[in-house]
Amino acid sequence: MTNNSTKVWIFILSSSLALLMIGYQVGERLGLLVGFLAALLLNFFVFFYGESRALARLNARRLKGQDSWGLIDKVEKLSVKLGLPAAPAVYLIPHPSSNAFCVGHSWKRGSLGFTVGLVQKLNETELEAVVAHQLCHIRRLDSFAYSVSSTLANSVVGLGQFLDSFLPYRLQFFMPLLSPIGWLIIKLVVGKNSFFENDLMASHLLENREQLGEVLWRLEGLAQTSPLSVPPCTSHLFIVNPEGFQQKNLFLKSHPPIKARLQKLMGYYPI
């Protein structure tokens, strides 16, 4: 089965070739040059700007120095245990919801984000489970696939918003047209099996399936009661669906149901 990172490379290669072909068909040699520059710009944006843009839109701030929750120590310890070449950077999101996310366009280093609500509500053991879960996404290169797909999808949605800004009376024509394409990119890369496999890998790292399962179950409930508003095409970056009951459209749901995740992980769903 094709893994997530392979899907991303295939998609990037296909989109770059498509830009070259369209450029040549429209303007022959000059169009080919324009298509090449467009493909180069797209790849530069994806690999060197997408991660920082996602962190900025979530208002994430790098955690340095004083760390009363011991997050940095947990990240460094588990990174060594997983064999990561470098510990990811740690960020805090100033929001009362309880959630965590990871981004990373590099195989060697990523970034972990934790909401203030999460570090305040979870105990030491629960925080360790969340850190382990997110680090496994980086180890499996899920963070690379998720971040690239999110950046590409956001570019499509942003193009729709930009084009709609020129329409009179605040009409929306391009946004409804391009938004499904953005989410289709997410769907092509992010499969439910990647969540199941990462849950299992994190439980092996923790050597305790029940510990991780209970944390996922609790976080899902907290996300429902205190949802987090996130930029378009970024909800799949989080450990559980950050939008909770606010997300009505089934097509936009990037996470498998929590019941399915816990049954795959523990063999039962807690009642």
Rank of each mutant, 00 (worst) to 15 (best):
S14I: 02
Y268V: 13
N193C: 00
L118F: 03
I22K: 02
L17I: 10
S106P: 02
E243F: 02
S111P: 00
F48K: 14
G83C: 04
L141F: 10
L141H: 09
A54F: 08
D67T: 04
Y268C: 10
P256R: 01
C136S: 08
L252H: 00
S149W: 00
A89N: 13
F251I: 08
L78R: 09
A18P: 02
P242D: 10
W107K: 14
I258G: 00
P257R: 12
N249R: 13
L163A: 10
K253I: 01
V75D: 06
S179V: 14
P231Y: 09
F11T: 09
V130R: 06
W183T: 00
L216M: 04
K187C: 03
D142F: 01
E210R: 12
R170S: 10
G83N: 09
E76D: 04
L250D: 11
T234G: 00
M201L: 14
L205V: 02
T234A: 05
V215F: 04
R209N: 14
K121R: 15
L92Q: 12
A260Q: 15
K121P: 11
G244D: 01
K81S: 04
L33Q: 04
Y269D: 11
E220M: 07
L178H: 00
D67C: 05
L118Q: 11
S150A: 13
P256A: 02
L265A: 08
S179K: 15
L58C: 00
L13S: 13
R53V: 13
Q134Y: 04
V8S: 04
N59E: 15
F245G: 10
L92I: 12
W107V: 05
S235A: 06
H204T: 08
F245L: 15
F11V: 05
F48G: 08
G160F: 01
A223R: 01
V190P: 00
G104Y: 03
H105R: 07
E28F: 13
G213Q: 08
L237W: 02
N123K: 13
L118Y: 07
I186S: 00
F166W: 15
V130H: 05
P180L: 11
Q263M: 14
G35C: 01
E51V: 01
L37V: 10
T125Q: 15
A56P: 03
L118G: 10
G23H: 02
P256Y: 00
R209S: 15
A86L: 07
A87V: 03
L17T: 10
Q161M: 10
S5C: 03
G104N: 07
S16E: 05
L200E: 14
T125L: 15
S165N: 01
A18E: 04
L92C: 10
F45L: 15
R209C: 13
P270R: 13
A153C: 12
S235L: 00
P176V: 01
L71M: 13
M175R: 06
P227S: 12
G244I: 09
G65R: 04
F101H: 02
F144M: 07
P232Q: 12
D142V: 03
G70N: 04
K259L: 01
P85L: 03
